[in-house]
Each structure stands twice: as structure tokens, then as C-alpha cells.
């Protein structure tokens, strides 16, 4: 529980730092007054119970943190506004460049990836290369953990088309293998979303490539 760890870490560290600062303060005081360190420790021991500073140290998160300040709220608000603006422009751009009547999007997903270590993918529509991707380890892990990658977003005219997808990767024994498929589809007036799914088949310990057209 990292978040809990984090809170406790803050609590303990702040407690410790304030204990130390109190400790140092008394040591310093004792030195100036030529008191010995033993007294300083003793004073620290008593001071720990009486000092209001120490009480605050015991509940570091109950005191207002900078994030609760007005300044912090203003910063958050501004950041939020920029993100909203970015979103608006993103949608505007998508609507402008890829209107629904011609839009085609191709997605890639992996379920679960035990028998196939994905390395790269190539996608063609009507024999023409439209997308290719080389995966890093992090990207592959992101797919294996349930993510879906939007591989391609483009435009296509109405009618019948053929999609070819070739996945390259390694099998369980580290041999390079290719998994490919051909899929014929009809582009109509609505957006077309095609998902290329690499699915583990536990019956033959191989990965199957399935094509799913999303029904909007």
C-alpha cells in the first residue's frame, strides 16, 4: 500500500526531523551554556512531551499542507483549464481530419500474451501499407495488462476493402513467428473501428489472431 506507506513515511520522517531539530536545539543550548549532552538528552526527553511543536510533529498531516493553499488550488485550476482546452482541440482536430463518414480506426489488444511475445505489427489495407509499429517492453506489458492501442486512425472511402495484419514476435521457446490474417470489411457511413486481438488459445498453446469490428 504505497499510498499508506507514503503517508506513514511523511509522518515518521517529519516526526523524526522535528525530534532531531528539537534534539539539536537543546544540544546547542546546552553547549552554549556548557551543559553536557546528557542533560540535553534528558531535556529532549521531557520536552518531547511538553512541546507543542512536538504535538504538531505527531500529526504532520493535520496541519495545512501547501497543496491546500489558495495558490495550489489556483495552479490546479489553471492546469485543469489547459487540459480541457487540449481536449477540445483534440476532438475538433479528429472531427475535422477524420469525419465519421470516412473514419477508420484500427486497434490492437493482447489477451493474455503467454504464448506470444509481441515484437511488431504491420497493417495493410487493399495491399497498401498503412501502419507499422515496433513495441518496447513497456508498451507490450501495457497491452498484456489489458490496454488497447489505437494503432491507426485514417480515412477510407465507402465500399468493400481488405485488411491484412501481420504480427511478428517470439513464441514460448524464443522462436520468431508470424501471425497474419486477412479480413474483408465494408466501409459505410459510420465510423469503423476494427480491433485486432491476439488471444491465447489454451487448447493448443498458441496465440490466435481475431478481428472484431466494433458495433457502435
Amino acid at each position: 500500500m504505497n499510498n499508506v506507506n507514503f503517508l506513514v513515511k511523511i509522518k515518521t520522517i517529519v516526526f523524526l526531523l522535528l525530534s532531531i531539530s528539537a534534539y539539536v536545539f537543546f544540544i546547542q543550548k546546552s553547549h552554549a551554556q556548557e551543559a553536557n549532552l546528557e542533560e540535553a538528552i534528558a531535556i529532549f526527553g521531557h520536552a518531547k512531551k511538553s512541546s507543542s511543536q512536538q504535538d504538531n510533529a505527531q500529526k504532520p498531516l493535520s496541519t495545512p499542507s501547501p497543496s491546500s493553499s489558495e495558490l495550489s488550488k489556483e495552479v490546479q485550476k489553471l492546469k485543469s483549464q489547459v487540459l480541457q482546452l487540449n481536449r477540445e482541440l483534440f476532438i475538433l482536430e479528429e472531427d475535422l481530419l477524420f469525419p465519421a463518414s470516412t473514419q477508420i480506426a484500427i486497434f490492437v489488444s493482447v489477451d493474455v500474451g503467454r504464448f506470444f511475445k509481441l515484437d511488431s505489427v504491420e497493417v495493410k489495407i487493399n495491399e497498401q501499407d498503412i501502419a507499422g509499429f515496433l513495441y518496447t517492453q513497456r508498451q507490450r506489458v501495457a497491452l498484456e495488462q489489458g490496454g488497447i492501442q489505437k494503432l491507426y486512425l485514417g480515412n477510407l472511402k465507402l465500399g468493400s476493402h481488405q485488411l491484412t495484419a501481420i504480427f511478428i514476435g517470439l513464441d514460448n521457446e524464443g522462436r520468431s513467428i508470424k501471425i497474419a490474417t486477412n479480413h474483408t470489411f465494408e466501409k459505410e457511413d459510420d465510423s469503423l473501428m476494427i480491433e485486432l486481438k491476439l488471444v491465447d488459445n489454451t487448447l493448443n498453446y498458441r496465440t490466435q489472431l481475431m478481428v472484431e469490428e466494433w458495433v457502435l
Binding site: F107, S109, R138, Q139, V141, A142, L143, Q145, G146, G147, I148, Q149, K150
Partner: peptide, 9 residues
Amino acid sequence: QQALYYYFQ
């Protein structure tokens, strides 16, 4: 799931 893809990265 699309958001997850970026989150895990």
C-alpha cells in the same frame, strides 16, 4: 482500455 494502455506506460 485505451486509457489503460497509456497509464501503464
